[in-house]
Nucleic acid binder design. Structure first.
Lengths: 326, 326
DNA sequence: CTGAAAGCGCTAACAT
DNA sequence: ATGTTAGCGCTTTCAG
């Protein structure tokens, strides 16, 4: 910066202002400086900036996985929004583990980010403590069924599960299967399922089959588990899947094996992923606004805060999509 | 750090050494320091570290999109590998635009990353110049058909396209369609297609239909474009799709409309995405090692370099998968 | 194995 | 609209 200043014939401070677009700089000087910078191949050093200003444009992002479209779509919304706001995401993947999340949070905080975006509302005590101590702004995403540390952006999984149960009961189904993945580490799926199961029982239904893959969610897992559930001597009338990938896999099993949907077995998923529209049969599902969740969380992080003490719960709308599989 | 030193009863320098795991520190002192840090809720500040040491554990990552599994799988490999090596990705999405990539590269360099991971081999002059000037290590990923700035990790798209053409010709197909997306901005897909088309012509085949969606790649786009291509008065014998999402969409169209595959029309994709295994019919495709590309690029960035001048082209193997659609 | 001094490259705060 | 001074929190270098 010193060198740029020399070449441009101004003070170092002026170069600093031009680089940051801060303060008032005359057009002529601004151009001189930019030219000088380009000439000597100068690249602004934000590490140094960050240490002086206590305000650097990084945002720490933790995701449970990159193997699930749901989260990459959220990340896409985050990335687009932060980019527009001049902020950069630095990120880590927790693999649905609270202890991995804890390590990540410490690591990300070492970059003095303007904010943190964390998945879900459940965090280790240690994470809660360090968030409290450092006062870093945290946006908790995906889930709004609970109390956030400061702000949450997501949907109600309890409502989604309950709504699906109600629909299936209304359609006359009485015996149910449930198929999930991630070995139960997906806490949002678990919330949906518990609300679903509770409503089913209240409505006189019976949950007669449950299958959980330890692997990451996929169509392949859904197809396999569906085959297993339907192989029972007394298979369920309807299967609730933890998500659309699994449900689509189930549909593929039925298509490939001549199982009549919804005649022999009804099926429903969750998320309303785009690819469902390409399948030969529309799957009943609950659409969740993944990209928008990322956008709203990132916008909140980008925006200067009025009352930092105030808790914010931004519950976005889900859309119940009745397809041809129920 | 000063405070931690006071609480632990050592010098600030000792705290610094403990935090970084550098130099020799006695077990006792190390524990004292760690306890003191925990007690007062100290979080290491790497910005300050980075400015003194010229060596901070960030890696800049640019991806063309997050809407395509191919790149999120690469990112997953990058993330896992960097995490293991104690490095952090900071990333941006270029939307397949060279000028957006250019801005991103400048922005990412301002964090003084240990390295950069960029998609493809085609970059703006400005990017090449700044890379040269700063001497930052760059791993160019996905493509190995060309000359990298310093190192590339990927597959040969030319070989993949040619291999597919050869296979289809051998199977007796003579008139072909091609379906793509991203409005031609996916330069790797274009390389595959050009090699494909050239071999087809050499083999006496005819390319009679081409469709390109401007949208991002998806099953929905594939289904739509396939419908359009097959609506022609003289539809092709076989359709080559730029990727599996499009090909799967095409399969769905045929399944839903009773079009016989490969009798009426054969189809082939590219990438060998996992979900293909769940479809009612195996699609012929070229498997590309996405995760592994991410891993090898990230490993290279993580490893201290012997001869920085030496160019490296790491071409990973593709696998030609003959399915039931050809 | 530990400490003291100097300074990394930038920006806040104030001055002009 | 631009310059001056002081210092951010750490690491390098050298000393012991």
């Amino acid at each position: 910066m010193h060198d740029v200043a020399r070449v441009a014939g101004v003070s170092q401070m002026t170069v600093s202002r031009v680089m940051r677009g801060a303060g008032y700089i005359s057009r002529a000087v601004r151009e001189q400086v930019n030219n000088a910078a380009r000439e000597i191949g100068y690249v602004h050093n934000r590490l140094a900036g960050g240490i002086s200003s206590y305000d650097n444009p990084l945002v720490g992002v933790v995701l449970p996985t990159l193997q699930n479209r749901v989260f990459t779509e959220v990340l896409s919304g985050i990335s687009d929004t932060l980019n527009t706001a001049g902020l950069r995401p630095v990120f880590g993947v927790s693999e649905y583990s609270q202890s991995a999340e804890e390590e990540l949070v410490f690591d990300l905080l070492s970059w003095r980010p303007r904010g943190l975006i964390l998945p879900g509302l459940e965090h280790s005590e240690s994470v809660r403590r360090i968030v409290e101590q450092t006062g870093v702004r945290v946006a908790e995403i995906m889930d709004t069924d609970g109390e956030p540390m400061t702000a949450s952006f997501g949907v109600s999984h309890v409502d989604a599960g309950r709504e699906m149960a109600t629909h299936l009961l209304e359609r006359g189904y009485r015996s149910f299967g449930y198929i999930a993945s991630q070995g139960g580490h997906d806490l949002r799926a678990t919330k949906r399922f518990e609300a679903f199961a509770s409503r089913i029982r209240d409505g006189g239904g019976l949950l007669i089959a449950q299958r959980m893959s330890k692997a990451t969610s996929s169509m392949v897992a859904g197809r396999q588990l569906t085959m297993e559930v339907l192989a029972h001597s007394d298979p369920p009338d309807a299967i609730y899947y933890a998500n659309d990938d699994l449900a689509a896999g189930g549909l593929m099993h039925c298509l490939a094996n001549g199982v009549d949907i919804p005649g022999q077995v009804a099926s429903a998923g969750c998320n309303g992923l785009g690819f469902l529209a390409a399948l030969p049969m529309k799957i009943t599902t609950t659409h969740t606004p993944r990209y928008e969740i990322g956008v709203s969380a990132a916008e909140w992080i980008s925006t200067p805060l009025n009352d930092p003490a105030e808790k914010l719960i931004e519950r976005l709308d889900t859309k119940f999509l009745i397809g041809e599989t129920t």
